[in-house]
Amino acid sequence: MTRRLGAGSLVIATHNSGKLKEISALLEPYGAKCISAGSLGLPEPAETGTTFVQNALIKARAAAEASGLAALADDSGLAVDALGGRPGVYTADWAERQWFEGDPGRDWYMAMGKVEGMLQQLGPDTDRAAAFHCVLALAWPDGEHAVYEGRCEGALTWPPRGEMGFGYDPVFVPAARGGEETFAEIEPSEKHAISHRADAFAKLVSDQFGA
């Protein structure tokens, strides 16, 4: 049996307050008291892995070792079949940092355009199948760990559509919705129910808190 989390503090290996809030809401019913690595002043480790699993484990292990508590990290991204699984672990890196109104942010339209340009170079009949992946890694200070993988199958479209998503959402059409609306055209509550992150969390909850 997989080692299980007990009620108590769980470090979420992130410095993003939005991600902490989202994960806390998902795990609160099971007695987990989530605190962020950022609030503990923990450094962000270099994500040197070449897979989602490797990067998630790097972050979870670093947070667990530094805090002395169990830690949870996620790594996610878009994999396009015709591009050999790219951008994959470099999903965010393809959206180069730009300056918007004085604050650095990622240019996601640039990233979407880069993917589209590469697909168009392959020809009009190129397979546009893609999937969002999410890996959740749990790590304990003694080195034990567990990994949960989720995915959402779909296809890419162009031009971008919708205003409710972020990242590559405006060009990703999930198969679970009948292949018509992009993630950015779907209400957030509906998107979260079918997303790659929802799939991974369902597996974590079943394994860690199930009967």
Score class of each variant (00 low, 15 high):
Ala129Val: 00
Lys19Pro: 02
Glu180His: 10
Ala64Glu: 02
Gly102Asp: 12
Ile12Asp: 00
Glu180Asp: 14
Leu119Asp: 06
Asp142Ile: 13
Tyr109Leu: 15
Tyr30Ala: 08
Gly6Thr: 14
Trp108His: 12
Ala66Asp: 07
Cys34Pro: 07
Val205Pro: 02
Tyr30Cys: 02
Gly117Met: 07
Ala131His: 15
Tyr90Gln: 03
Val115Gln: 02
Gln54Ala: 15
Arg61Ser: 02
Gly49Ala: 02
Gly85Gln: 11
Gly165Val: 09
Pro45Phe: 00
Thr50Val: 07
Asp199Ile: 01
Met1Asn: 11
Ala70Phe: 09
Ala64Val: 05
Arg61Met: 05
Thr157Ser: 15
Gly123Cys: 06
Glu185Tyr: 10
Ser189Thr: 15
Val80Leu: 04
Gly18Gln: 05
Pro159Lys: 13
Gly77Thr: 07
Glu144Leu: 08
Ala184Leu: 12
Thr14Val: 02
Glu28Asp: 11
Gln121Ala: 14
Asp107Met: 03
Asp81Asn: 01
Ala79Asp: 01
Leu20Ala: 09
Gly41Asp: 03
Asn16Cys: 11
Tyr148Leu: 12
Pro170His: 15
Leu57Met: 12
Ala60Asp: 01
Val11His: 00
Ala62Met: 00
Lys33Asp: 03
Gly31Met: 03
Asn16Tyr: 05
Asp125Ser: 15
Glu187Cys: 06
Cys34Asn: 03
Ala82Glu: 01
Gly105Met: 10
Glu65Val: 11
Phe166His: 14
Glu22Pro: 10
Gly77Phe: 06
Glu65Asn: 02
Ala146Val: 07
Val80Cys: 04
Ala175Lys: 14
Ser36Asn: 08
Ala139Cys: 09
